[in-house]
Simulated assay, not measured.
Amino acid sequence: SRLTDRKESKLCILEREILETKKGMSSRSFERLSPTETLEIENGLSFVPRVKLLLTVHRSDHSVKPIDEWQLKRSLIDFLKTSFSVTVAEDDLDIKRFKDLKKRKREDPVAHGALFIRDLGFLSKPSNSRIEDSVAGEDDVKALEKKFLDWRRSVVDKMDGIELNLVGVKFRLTVAIPSSDDFDGMRKEWEELSAFSSRGYSRGGRQQPDTIVLRGVPSRWFAEPRVSSKPSMLVTHTIFSTFGKIRNLNVAEDDDLGKSADKDSEDIVSGLQCKIVVQFEKYNEFYNALKVFCGHSLQKQGSRLRADYEVTWDKDGFFRNARSQTQENSSRMPATATGYYKSEAPRRQPHISRFSPDNGRSKRFKE
């Protein structure tokens, strides 16, 4: 029996070492993931690289003619092809006019939209198609990240502020990178808050973020197949465990996304998307997960749909506030119950008639 126990203990140690090795390898693989590389995870989901740019269109002349969305699309697609040798499909360029143009001021935008550049293979070198687990691989990834960020910045700088002449009508284009795609901007934000709190201006004890907030992903991708179309806690936990050990998890249908979206938008239907809030055990797991989510679209195996979600880090202490609210509610319950049992009901209560005096006296029988 002792020999059996020793064998079992050795097996447990070996399994633990294998799990730790796999965990270390997965952590390193996230750190070595290039910005132009596709990452496959659990449940048939893949992170597909892309560049997303937010577009806003203003008038630059005194014309009151409505904007031609098709002409604007063709003009931008040709501009990208000529200036950057990038091919963009029409489906990856979404332009929408504001419907209340007559009520808007002249300086207000007349249209808005988003541009997705998905073919980024030209940025990666052939030798970097498979980055080895070595110091040279780390240098290659950093060099490719810098090349990617510099190229994206050059696209924004060149497109922002250009004038478009559409059939004799002039428009001015404003281009920006969405905050959910700006990983360096988010990191700078939480580092500044951490430095600010370390000087004694914050009451919170946590110095580093550990929670991701994800919105705009299809609920059915996080649901149990053939069971329900609503997001499942178990499936969501399995998917996010790819990035590390989870401390807290909250998943629910995101009805607020449809309400908070622009009224002109018909793409977002309430209840079809879900909101996921996940808290990791370690900062580096949170860091790697957020970096992967930035600059990617989510795609499901067997589906042509790409989910261009919104992701950010939790600034408001979602789980801390939820825990405080639960404790507050639980502390109120005994007091309420005590007050109820201590109070004495009056022996006689005033009779309240179902009829007002104007309606005459109540009648029990027909007259």
Rank of each mutant, 00 (worst) to 15 (best):
T4S: 13
K10F: 12
C12I: 10
E15Q: 15
E15T: 07
I18W: 06
I18R: 13
K22E: 10
S27R: 10
R28I: 14
R28A: 15
F30I: 03
E31I: 03
E31G: 05
E31N: 03
L33N: 13
S34W: 00
P35H: 15
E37P: 00
T38W: 03
P49Q: 09
R50W: 01
R50Y: 07
K52S: 15
L53N: 03
L54R: 10
V57S: 03
R59W: 06
K65A: 15
I67L: 15
W70N: 13
W70T: 14
K73Q: 12
S75E: 12
I77K: 11
D78S: 14
L80M: 12
V88Y: 02
D100W: 00
L101K: 07
R104G: 02
R106W: 15
A111P: 04
A111Q: 05
A111R: 06
G113D: 04
L115S: 04
L115T: 03
K125A: 11
K125H: 12
I131E: 03
G137M: 02
K142L: 15
D150N: 08
D150Y: 00
S154V: 01
V156Q: 10
K158S: 15
M159L: 15
I162R: 04
I162G: 05
I162L: 10
L166R: 03
V167E: 14
V167Y: 12
G168S: 05
G168L: 05
V169W: 00
L173F: 01
L173Y: 02
A176R: 14
I177H: 09
S180F: 10
F183C: 05
K188E: 15
S194H: 01
A195H: 08
G204S: 15
R206C: 05
R206F: 11
Q207I: 14
V213T: 08
R215L: 07
P218K: 05
P218G: 01
P218M: 01
W221Q: 02
A223D: 06
K230R: 10
S232P: 03
V235S: 06
T236F: 06
H237D: 13
H237E: 14
T238W: 07
F240T: 04
F240S: 01
S241T: 05
G244P: 05
R247A: 04
V251G: 04
D254F: 03
D255E: 12
D255V: 10
L257T: 01
G258M: 06
K259V: 12
K259G: 02
D262T: 09
D264V: 11
D264W: 09
D267R: 09
I268E: 05
V269I: 11
G271R: 06
C274M: 06
I276N: 09
Y283F: 14
Y283T: 04
N288R: 13
N288I: 00
A289H: 07
K291G: 01
V292C: 12
F293Q: 02
C294H: 03
S297E: 08
Q301K: 12
S303V: 06
A307Y: 02
D308E: 09
Y309F: 13
V311H: 01
D314C: 01
F319G: 00
Q325M: 06
Q327L: 15
S330K: 11
P334T: 11
Y341S: 08
K342M: 09
R348E: 13
Q349G: 04
G360K: 08
R361V: 14
K366T: 14
E367G: 12
